[in-house]
Design a protein around this nucleic acid. Structure first.
Lengths: 218, 218
DNA sequence: CAGCAATATGAGTGATTCTCATGTTAAGCG
DNA sequence: CGCTTAACATGAGAATCACTCATATTGCTG
């Protein structure tokens, strides 16, 4: 758990004090997102609310995008941890049950986790502007990882639980499924504060229909 | 064609001169997006390149987001116009052919239309930050229209050509399909400059599989 | 405790978005 | 044709933001 590091932070907080500070900044970032939205977010206000000077903010985060990216990674870790627990405790006999659980967990986090309604895993947020920005494309690279990480861990969960045929075909299918599901669920929450129930149901249909080609019948 | 108006512009350009100016600003916005990305885009530079003073820019566009939103709407219109033409000229016997054509047209625009690689229809771009921004949510409303417009016109095309069962079920299914396809294709172009061919193929599979529940067999 | 390296700080720099007072053109009218 | 009034155009400037960097502070080691 808690894997906010790879390429997103300038300096990895070593001491407890620093770790708490980074955590507080992420917390306030999430809360601010709910209040003022992504464009209204300012590094100054995040730092002020977290009780750290602006200079310290930039000791840890390379820029505003880095902050949001770190939050997205934390969200991702949180989601995967929760899902792992739920998949472990529930009796899963069918991979479609796993889809059901995953979507439900995502929906639950949309409703309860601060900032998650605005920035969930956030890969889309980073791609426009990230790549062509200056010279490098490390932002993009870091962002793209997210999809791969989700798919990887979902595959690990799925295969371990249900013994599906491994291979690049399944890998790609899972990435596609995650991307598509994320988009539909985002839409569901854009149209309805608690997530349009019909669209949530359709999201499950979409994923099940599609994955039926790549996973065993039942 | 050319429907850049609903809520996106401060003042609708009435005279030819103004219309050309707005068009030029959108053109330069698109080209700049390719050069510097979304975050690198500045209203000042767009105005400078389009040969209009910054004050004039703000006569027509409410803000930077309004500019990008207007571009997204123009892209949307362009896409639907092209698709309508292609669907009309080709002999379509099966709705799966329509899916094929639609995805191919999107891919073609990703490769050739300036700025389209960064901002296509852009509904995702607007939702984070737009809604919670201040008090109103007109930004969100305007953005949400996009999905509805696409689905509406796609449905009109589909139904007229192939006689599918009308109803809210089909409407919702088309919205879901558009949203999911858009997300997967965006991923395809994030991973590969010309669009990952496998992912493009998978996008078609995804849509066909899903829509098979809502449209006639062949 | 001396010396050194790591970390912390916030006033300042340059850049950006967007406004608004003023200037310019067109439109209506007797 | 002049006069009045409204629409439109303009760019200097106000407000704000992201991010830096020189200096101060803290902790670490011998």
């Amino acid at each position: 758990m808690m894997n906010v590091s790879a390429g997103t932070l300038r300096r990895r907080p070593a001491q407890r004090r620093s770790l708490e500070r980074v955590e507080r900044m992420l917390d306030e970032c999430a809360r601010l997102l709910d209040e003022v939205g992504y464009d209204g977010l300012t590094t100054k206000e995040v730092a002020r609310r977290a009780g750290v000077p602006i200079g310290t903010f930039y000791q840890f985060f390379p820029d505003k995008q880095g902050l949001v990216r770190a939050l997205a990674l934390r969200n991702l870790d949180g989601f995967l941890d929760r899902l792992t627990i739920r998949l472990g405790s529930a009796e899963i006999t069918d991979w479609t049950d796993a889809v059901h659980l995953a979507v439900d967990e995502f929906v639950a986090m949309k409703r309860t986790t601060p900032g998650f309604a605005i920035v969930d895993f956030g890969e889309i947020l980073f791609s426009p502007g990230g790549p062509a920005l200056k010279g490098t494309n490390r932002l993009l690279d870091a962002a793209l990882e997210n999809n791969v990480i989700v798919a990887d861990r979902l595959r690990a969960l799925t295969i371990d639980l249900l013994g599906a045929p491994r291979g690049p075909g399944l890998d790609r299918a899972l990435v596609v499924a995650v991307e598509a599901a994320d988009a539909v669920l985002k839409l569901a929450f854009r149209l309805h504060p608690d997530g349009d129930p019909d669209l949530i149901a359709e999201c499950k249909n979409l994923v099940r229909r599609y994955l039926a080609d790549h996973l065993p019948e039942r």
